[in-house]
Write a protein that binds this DNA or RNA. Structure first.
Length: 880
RNA sequence: GGGCGGUUAGCUCAGCGGUAGAGCACUUGCUCGACACGCAAGGGGUCACUGGUUCAAUCCCAGUACCGCCCACCA
């Protein structure tokens, strides 16, 4: 006998271990089943499961379990990402605490520590994923720095390089002076802050007391100014174009040039140009062939070069700024200081202010690679669900700038490029190969840099299944079916997988990209540690059980809208699990757990035919919802069916039927058992633990018989029964009507009263006979009989053609009954009026489809009939 | 500045051309032998605003307001 409440903790671990041990998560490359593939977005090794992961993986697991049960050979490829810069952050912080840094420790030692850290923290997230009940093919778990995946990175790099899709160039890049590495455009976020704008006077050469004023938020960069630009049409400055100014402090002469970049509306209309320290200025510099002067080193300190006054040498950028301002002030060269709101570029992870910096770096020619990637989506080879996210994708891929992929870090894939003494570069997968290219006696040194983490992630859909080797897995599981991801990495990851896949595989990496919502807190705020509003999925699992957490996330995953997660939803779905548990308990107590040899399509009794029909209908609804990635609809459909249909009606109907013996009761037992078993199957992808536990307890037939390897049902037309459906819906209406009247009239809940029915059709009479027991039990009636007379002081209500009469004048307040009837009639009148307004409208009658008109007419007729009966009831009440 | 979403019951959210839905919360009544994490019956909404299209608009179109996000720019 089951306990009264369901205790998730008691069963979760047991089932998970059993599943995993038995190997049911594994794909089978040799099978002849249709493959179904999902590539898991690899979480960072340093990460721990947050609520967004929980959502992401729950949805993937539902898809995988569903398709596995549908008989497909499911591959859910798991793994983790080495998260180059994130790991650096962790380790560097540690080293800092130990009073050292990575440069003192050295590359080799640092990497040792990185691997240690990876071993230590790497399986935190995968063990947390196990708690979520996810079923990826753990045997195939990959890591982006595995041998195989590293090979793929080398192969991809060389292929791209040989096709000129990777090149090395000196460019202005985003530099993180604390991490001392370049980062990509995407890793830079713009942070708004209060800042100052200084208006600085630059003396014009050859003129006394003539100045041109430039406005800047970064005065320290003036050490590297190589021009002042004004707009060619700006009357204020036209006469100065071609002249020079004497750059204060360094005393260099720099030209005043005309360039449309200069906006007369902004600042003073004249802008200082520092090509080596500003992206826009860089462009201007290119146009005018200006000199580029780097004034900072990799730590963002002023370089010790001759052209810079000695007192600035080695100063960090902030100190340099202050000193420069002081010096300008002392020469009375600051015209004005404004307080403004501006944005500064900050490293996404490090939080450090990013410095535009001239260095030689490796780039991927993403503007070229993006074209086929964009086209593939335009051609519908890959579709985004919901479709609106294609806009975000296009906005990104259609406006690509070259992707800087080299990082001055150590943890990651070292770039497979070697240099000889003259700096000539040799790119190859191995040092031997590079040496071969260079010639025997040439001394080579390898590029120190590693690749951006996203480079290896971009290969994930094929590197994890063997590429560049031609493996059976690659052949079978590529391209994948569905990618499930959050919109925040469409740019970082999805677009890059598309680009690399189109180039290296000549095909899209997946057919569907399902983009799920962001999980926010109750108030709609993004969850973050600093706000302290994070909900830890593991805590929630502890509190409500995995099944409830999964079901909640699924039920709230409506397309295109953020999820605001409120805890009472979790409670509600925890209750749902308990409900299922107790329904099973009821089946157990009533010996309704076996349906061997039972053929649902040959059920004879209407309640059974009806619930069988409903099982089919619910299954189809769930199918349709999952296939369309409408997870919330799937969850609601199964919830509504289990609670609202099976528990609230079918099981209640079964009670009086099971109280008797014989053929009917026997069929009810078998149908109940069958329906419960189907429910467990339908619910399994959503709530794997409780369903597996119940199934194992009730239906298990041999060691291999589990839901996880069970068959998703498909029911033929013979499972449908519209006649039984309308018959049972009539029963529900009758019961509902009587219950409602009883409650309205304050009939004591325990009182059993008689029901008289007047004007019943043959069909109604037959239905009453067939379901008398059920109706009596559920509506708490002592008996139902037919009548032609209405006793005085009776309560009346109308169901279809029949009048239901409750002769209870002695226990109710007749005034109340009059009020009740008046209210019902009033509502009917309103309806009739509305319908009349429509039918009286000539245009409506002319233009509306006939079926709509007929519907209105029949509704009016029904309402009129009902009203006349109720008016009689009122009359009768008045005569008493 | 460009773009994309959202605005529906007290709360969290579905729905989407033909009489407004769910869960939670609320009210009332129930220990009806599965379940009080429950059962039953209720109350509660000019579907943000303004126009337009239509016989008919919560739903389609245009605009307004507020909220959120993405991208770009900021001397």
């Amino acid at each position: 006998m089951l306990d009264k409440t369901f205790d998730p903790k008691a069963i979760e671990e047991k089932h998970y271990q059993e599943w995993e041990k038995s190997g049911v998560f594994a794909c089978d490359p040799s099978s002849d089943k249709e493959p179904y593939t999902i590539m898991m977005p690899p979480p960072n090794v340093t990460g721990s499961l947050h609520i967004g992961h929980a959502l992401n993986h729950t949805l993937q697991d539902i898809l995988i379990r569903y398709n596995r049960m549908k008989g497909k050979d499911a591959l859910w490829q798991p793994g983790t990402d080495h998260a180059s810069i994130a790991v650096h952050m962790v380790l560097e912080k540690k080293l800092h605490e130990e009073g050292t840094d990575r440069f003192q420790v050295g590359r080799e030692k640092f990497l040792e520590k990185a691997w240690e850290w990876k071993e230590y923290s790497g399986n935190t997230i995968t063990s947390q994923l196990r708690r979520l009940g996810t079923t990826p093919d753990w045997e195939r778990e990959a890591f982006t720095m595995d041998e195989g995946l590293s090979k793929a990175v080398l192969a991809a790099f060389v292929k791209l390089y040989n096709a000129n899709m990777i090149y090395r160039a000196e460019r202005l890049v985003n530099w993180d002076p604390e991490r001392q590495t370049v980062i990509s455009d995407l890793e830079v976020i713009q942070k708004e802050q209060k800042g100052k704008m200084w208006h600085i006077k630059y003396p014009v050469e050859g003129e006394t007391e003539q100045f041109i004023t430039v406005a800047t938020t970064r005065p320290e960069t003036m050490l590297g100014d190589t021009a002042v630009a004004v707009h060619p049409d700006d009357e204020r400055y036209k006469h100065m174009i071609g002249k020079s100014v004497i750059l204060p402090i360094t005393e260099r002469l720099i030209p005043i040039i005309a360039d449309e970049y200069s906006d007369p509306e902004k600042g003073s209309g004249a802008v200082k140009i520092t090509p080596a320290h500003d992206f826009n200025d860089f462009e201007v510099g290119q146009r005018h062939d200006l000199q580029m002067i780097s004034i900072m080193d990799e730590k963002a300190c002023i370089v010790s070069e001759e052209f810079i006054p000695e007192q600035y040498h080695g100063l960090d950028r902030n100190k340099a700024r202050n000193k420069i301002l002081e010096e300008l002030e002392s020469h009375d060269l600051i015209e004005d200081v404004e307080t403004i709101k501006n944005t500064i570029p900050v490293g996404e992870r490090s939080g450090v202010v990013i410095e535009p910096f001239m260095t030689k770096q490796w780039f991927v020619d993403t503007p070229t690679l993006a074209k086929p990637a964009a086209q593939a989506v335009r051609d519908g080879k890959t579709r985004f669900i919901p479709q609106q996210y294609e806009n975000m994708y296009f906005a990104w891929v259609d406006n690509q700038l070259p992707w800087c992929i080299s990082r001055q870090l150590w943890w990651g894939h070292q770039i497979p490029a070697w240099y000889d003494r003259d700096g000539k570069v040799y790119v190859a997968e191995t040092e031997e190969e590079a040496q071969k290219q260079a010639g025997k006696n040439v001394e080579l040194t390898r590029d120190d840099d590693v690749l951006d983490t996203w480079f290896s992630s971009a290969l994930w859909p094929f590197s994890t299944i063997g590429w560049p080797e031609k493996t059976p897995e690659l052949d079978r599981y590529f391209p994948g079916d569905t990618l499930v991801t959050g919109f925040d990495i469409i740019t970082f990851w999805v677009s890059r997988m598309m680009m690399f896949s189109m180039f290296l595989m000549d095909d899209v990496p997946f057919k569907d990209v399902y983009v799920h919502a962001l999980v926010r807190d109750e108030k709609g705020h993004k969850m973050s540690k600093s706000k302290g509003n994070v909900m830890d999925p593991i805590d929630l699992i502890e509190k409500y059980g995995t099944d409830a957490v999964r079901f909640t996330l699924c039920a709230m995953a409506a397309q295109g809208r953020d999820i605001r997660l409120a805890e009472d939803r979790l409670q509600g779905y925890r209750n749902f699990a308990t409900k299922l548990w107790n329904a099973s308990r009821y089946c157990e107590m009533n010996d309704a757990l076996s349906h061997e040899g039972f053929d649902p399509t040959s059920a004879k009794f209407a309640p059974n035919q009806w619930i069988i029909h409903e099982v089919k209908a619910a299954t189809e609804e769930i199918d349709k919802a999952i296939e369309g990635y409408r997870f919330n609809e799937a969850a609601n459909a199964v919830y509504q069916f289990v609670w609202g249909t099976f528990c609230d009606w079918y099981l209640e109907i079964s009670k009086p039927l099971l109280a008797q013996d014989g053929e009917a009761a026997d069929e009810v037992r078998k149908t109940t058992s069958w329906a419960l078993s189907q429910i467990l199957i339908l619910l399994n992808p959503f709530m794997p633990y409780i369903t597996e536990e119940l199934y194992a307890g009730f239906y298990k037939d041999g060691a291999d018989d589990r839901l996880i390897t069970g068959q998703w049902p498909e029911y033929g037309a013979e499972y449908s029964n519209d006649a039984a459906k309308s018959e049972m819906e009539w029963v529900q209406t009758i019961v509902g009507e009587i219950r409602s009247v009883r409650a309205d009239m304050n009939v004591p809940a325990g009182a059993k009263i008689a029901l008289l029915v007047k004007g019943a059709s043959d069909q109604t009479q037959a239905r009453i006979n067939a379901h008398k027991k059920v109706i009596c039990k559920m509506a708490r009636l002592s008996d139902i009989s037919l009548t032609d007379d209405i006793p005085s002081g009776a309560v009346q209500t109308i169901v279809e053609e029949a009048t239901l009469i409750l002769p209870i004048a002695d226990i109710i307040d007749l005034d109340e009954e009059r009020k009740r009837l008046a209210k019902v009639i009033g509502k009917l009148d309103q309806d009739i009026q509305k319908i009349d307004a429509k039918l009286g409208n000539e245009k409506f009658v002319q233009n509306a489809p006939q079926e709509v008109i007929d519907e209105q007419k029949s509704r009016k007729a029904d309402a009129l009939a009902k009203r006349s009966k109720l008016e009689q009831a009122v009359k009768q009440l008045q005569s008493t």
